[in-house]
């Protein structure tokens, strides 16, 4: 499956919906979207990965790059993910300590609201 991307803004949080495979071929599209969102002033991003079938280290790199960009503006980049096969990659690489990872968009929005 190819990569489908969509995004919407709710309050101050920009929710990025990702569906399909994030790999060395498709990751540049996600990178471009994250860069574009930051350039347009969206500094609090929530990436919903519930429909991601595949994620490799290239995709992790794009997410880390996005996190660096938003942090430069005192922003945040957090994830929604409950799929064990995706979470395993974050655990192997130690990135569970870097990203806030939530079980649902609502849970992330609630946590984000408390941080405001």
């Amino acid at each position: 499956m190819d990569l489908k991307l969509d995004h919407r803004t709710e309050d101050r949080l920009t929710i990025v919906e990702v569906e399909g495979e994030i790999d060395v071929y498709t990751a540049p599209r996600l990178r471009e979207l994250l860069i574009d969102l930051v350039n347009k002033g969206n500094f609090h991003l929530l990436v919903n990965m519930e429909k991601v079938d595949f994620l490799d280290s290239t995709g992790l790199g794009v997410l880390v790059g996005g996190l660096k960009r938003v942090r430069a503006h005192d922003g945040s980049l957090e994830l929604v993910c409950t799929q064990e096969r995706i979470l395993k990659i974050f655990r192997i690489t130690g990135l569970t300590k870097v990203f806030g990872i939530y079980a649902s968009v609502d849970e992330a929005k609630e946590a984000h609201g408390k941080d405001k």
């Binding site: 990178r31 490799d56 790199g61 880390v64 790059g65 990659i89 690489t93």
Partner: peptide, 13 residues
């Protein structure tokens, strides 16, 4: 960490 992730990271995976 850079955007174009390091190949060594892939090895770790």
């Amino acid at each position: 960490l850079s955007d174009s992730f390091m190949s060594n990271f892939g090895i770790a995976v």
